[in-house]
């Protein structure tokens, strides 16, 4: 059973209020007010001058366990929202592996689930490790630059902030065991199929609820058994609405980071995991759910249930 071994994150110290982003995001003053007052978005982290490699290295350097277990890392996966983030053939993942002494590991990027790719990467890493020696590890990293308009804003929904995460995954392990994973893909939201962007907004809640219910069912649990939800940090109001519809207390959804970081691509889950651990919100035996929706010409709605 796939398990998380260690998690680390990096959030740049430089914070930018969303009002200062209005120009580059083409936001009207009304849209900025909506983001702040209604969606509860406030600041994003930015690392001016930093490259994608810098972000990934900063997160991995916070992974205290890595130097001692470097030789056990068989796979390195970059979970990425945007399929193309540097000019071909530049390869920050490969450079990262070389700098970290992981150049014997098999490294590749997983993508096309947009911001839900982080959950996919954990599942894929665990599956690949099933064929390796029992103590083998995979390093799953996430983190991207807000380098172009599409990577800075989700229209009417959220803004992206920069940051990164690094997570060691085992095929079997005692900490944070993966009980179930569910992903629902909606290629019918691709702009080749529809130009009606309103449909995504209309069906978003139902699609994410379906993924959550599927993951909880597959774990053999009921929603009441879930002690905590680690959401994607797109905004607060979407989670308030979802909780009302699905019948889950919103105060058990960790929304603290929405105003502090906004949506950190595929790293949200790990940023929120760190906050939950720091605040003592996860006790041994607790079952918790991680949820993410990724939208970018097609949409993927994903949920994972873990036991801490």
């Amino acid at each position: 059973m796939t398990a998380l071994e260690a998690v680390a994150t990096y959030l740049p110290e430089h914070r930018v209020p969303i009002e200062e982003l209005a120009g580059e995001l083409d936001l009207t003053p009304m849209q900025v007010r909506l983001f702040r007052r209604f969606h509860k978005l406030s600041d994003v982290c930015r690392a001016p001058g930093a490259t994608p490699l810098d972000l990934l290295l900063a997160a991995v350097s916070n992974l205290d366990d890595l130097p001692a277990v470097r030789h056990r890392v068989r796979y390195v996966l970059w979970a990425r929202t945007f399929p193309v983030v540097v000019p071909y053939p530049l390869n920050p993942l490969e450079t990262m592996c070389r700098l970290l002494g992981l150049d014997k590991a098999v490294a590749f990027t997983v993508t096309h689930h947009a911001c839900a790719t982080g959950l996919l990467a954990i599942d894929v890493a665990g599956r690949l490790l099933a064929g390796s020696e029992p103590d083998a590890l995979a390093l799953v990293v996430a983190g991207e630059k807000a380098f172009t308009y599409d990577a800075r804003v989700v229209p009417e929904t959220s803004v992206f902030g920069e940051g990164a995460s690094a997570c060691l995954v085992r095929h079997e392990g005692p900490r944070d065991r993966l009980l179930a994973y569910a992903a629902g893909q909606r290629g019918d939201f691709d702009d080749e199929v529809t130009t009606d962007v309103g449909r995504f907004q209309e069906e978003y809640q139902a699609a994410l609820m379906a993924a959550i219910r599927a993951a909880v069912d597959r774990a053999g649990l009921a929603l009441d058994d879930i002690a905590l939800v680690l959401p994607h940090n797109v905004n607060v109001v979407a989670w308030q609405r979802l909780c009302r519809r699905i019948g889950y207390p919103v105060d058990r959804v960790l929304l603290d980071n929405v105003p502090l970081t906004a949506h950190v691509f595929c790293a949200d889950a790990f940023v929120n995991y760190q906050t939950a651990r720091a605040r003592g919100l996860l006790r041994p035996g607790d079952r918790y759910l991680v949820a993410a929706a990724g939208a970018g010409r097609g949409a993927t709605f994903s949920a994972m249930v873990f036991e801490h």
Binding site: F82, V110, H112, T300
Partner: peptide, 20 residues
């Protein structure tokens, strides 16, 4: 910038789990 595999999931019989 496109999540192409997700689009392909919509086209492919069985609507498979799809990624790149």
């Amino acid at each position: 910038g496109r999540a192409t595999a997700t689009y392909l999931s919509h086209l492919c019989p069985g609507s498979p789990l799809a990624f790149a």
